[in-house]
Design a protein around this nucleic acid. Structure first.
Lengths: 334, 334
DNA sequence: GCTGGCACTCGATTGTAACGAGTGCCAGCC
DNA sequence: GGCTGGCACTCGTTACAATCGAGTGCCAGC
């Protein structure tokens, strides 16, 4: 739809604007290698590109700025993810060489890594619990009518739920409930656990009933995944108006908004959402780059980068791809 | 050290500056009720106050702005914490009427409440684990050489530690270790647990050894408390330069910095740190207001508000005091 | 000791002019 | 026919001067 020359010119404008944050004029573009025409010709092409909605002028007699559509074309024409710069790649490699220990801590650290590499905010969404299998279950009494249901999952994640009971329960009853729940649930997935119906004596155990009800409720509400956000200070530095910063931070505080955005993007097979494409008004000046990560061959989570629309897409795409892959490897190997 | 009139004038300047963020001139001060002198007299006093370091002029022929010392005098002369506005008090009351459930969730929500009430960032530091008693202990195998130590504390908090073992361990060994650890640790405080030495057969159980070593190591590193930060978007909106916002966010990302600041403040009996008093260079334009909260009569944690030096101190102090007290009540009553 | 008055300072606002980076368009050249 | 050099034009930015006004410090007088 765009001939070669227009595409090259558009690409040049986007690249320069990403670098300088200043409107790009025809002479700058003409000077670029790969564009071997005069500035006058470039001007004609720029006018055409503006007409087609790829560029805008802040005012007459100013250079051009890419629109969301312009960025979109640029991103789509990038092709394969590309490589990280040597020092960045080094940093990622070192991180995963040292990384060890608990899942949560690793995901938290991953969000810091990703934000340091890209200089934008990073979002890491942990594996949903529903696919994990249950390794252990225990009910612990806190007060006479409040107990804590502790569920240990195979990936090392712990879920806990407070159970508010209708009647006093002693330690013996809790031990019995623990045994019954273990028999019912250990080895099952969380999803299966949520639809488990107790049988035999367990069916009449009020603690077992409360525990299963709690798991069912949790499954239905679904939305609350583990999410780790890092690098908000870098994100702030990428804008120039504090109201913009404040608006974006407000969105990030409502984690479910950004999580559902990321999930929806992956469902639609997108890895970049640009400006208004996000569908979130306060993010009109932001872009999001996401990638899934795989453990044991299955997509289990999402990582993403949130920056200004004039973000460094090639670098962000490369970073998200590399970090996602390494994270998956790390989780698969255990 | 300041006579009545100077104190009143200083107070008037601080109040107006907090409200308007504009340098305050003598005529504005003279117009205030409680200052029944002419603007000329006010000017003389302002000059004296500036000489004493309570105020500064951004430039000649501009009004005055309070220095950190000026704010300090203002805060010190406030006396008792004062009351929250009716709607704010209402909001706090409603929150704690509805609040229930897990400690972590409550603390997280409390940080949101405090930031909504004050319109600044809020920091809530959870009770340190060392004073809590252990309710249950369990060791769960994840892989043949990796196990998870799960410790349930009396306040409903769960600690988990991965144990990397030197040799393969089967389920029976883990059960045995769980039983031995339970016998040793249940009922003890975390602090006591960290110095527990196994005896009898437990002394030779490698899993027990690894678990205790892990608890000991955790105790020594100490610093990592639970901390919940909310309202960064409101904080951002309170500044006018994006670099300031970015700097402050960077500090907040290093949670231990702000946690140790808050702890140190309470140790020194301060509840307000103004500007450079914080001792943290990037927070030179910020103030911190803190309050401890008490559960069962003992100080167990800290809540705080972080805003610009020109924050609304009376409101912040009141909010922190009220929310801290209510939170403590909530935790005490269970 | 307070106050009204006055000269003064200096940032902010306004107006004007020059600059220059950019544009659109057109005539001419290959 | 398409590219290009040239040209008139636009308009934000910069520079500079003038004016305004909110503020000051100081002093004489009540």
């Amino acid at each position: 739809m765009l001939d070669d020359r227009k595409a090259n010119i558009l690409k040049a404008v986007v690249e320069e604007y990403i670098e300088t944050a200043q409107p790009v004029g025809s002479s700058h573009v003409a000077r670029k290698p790969g564009v071997n025409v005069s500035s006058a010709t470039v001007r004609n092409e720029l006018a055409a590109l503006e007409n087609d909605g790829y560029l805008v002028q802040p005012h007459t007699s100013a250079g051009r700025i890419p629109t969301d559509k312009g960025y979109r074309f640029f991103v789509d024409s990038l092709g394969a993810p590309g490589q990280l710069s040597a020092p960045d790649a080094q940093q990622v490699r070192q991180f995963f060489a040292r990384a060890h220990g608990e899942l949560e801590q690793m995901l938290r650290d991953t969000s810091l890594l990703l934000s340091r590499v890209t200089d934008y905010a990073a979002v890491v969404v942990g594996p949903p619990h529903e696919q994990s299998t249950i390794r252990a279950v225990q009910v612990v009494g806190l007060t006479s009518r409040v107990a804590l249901l502790v569920v240990v999952l195979s990936n090392g994640v712990i879920e806990k739920h407070t159970l508010e009971l209708d009647e006093d329960v002693d330690d013996a009853a809790l031990s019995a409930a623990t045994a019954r729940l273990s028999a019912l649930l250990v080895g099952a997935t969380m999803r299966a656990a949520a639809v488990t119906e107790p049988q035999g004596p367990a069916a009449n155990d009020p603690v077992v009933g409360a525990a299963l009800a709690e798991l069912r409720a949790d499954q239905e509400s679904a939305g609350v995944d583990d999410v780790y956000i890092g690098g908000t200070s870098s994100l702030a530095a990428a804008f120039d108006a504090v109201t913009q910063v404040s608006d974006v931070l407000r969105i990030l505080e409502q984690q479910f908004v950004v999580v559902s955005l990321m999930r929806e993007m992956l469902d639609r097979g997108l890895n970049v959402a640009i400006g208004t494409e996000t569908g979130i008004v306060p993010l009109a000046e932001c872009s999001v780059v996401v990638a899934p990560y795989y453990a044991e061959g299955e997509a289990v989570g999402t990582i993403g980068v949130l920056g200004p629309t004039r973000m460094n897409y090639p670098q962000a795409l490369a970073a998200v791809a590399v970090v996602g892959r390494r994270l998956g490897d790390r989780l698969t190997e255990g």
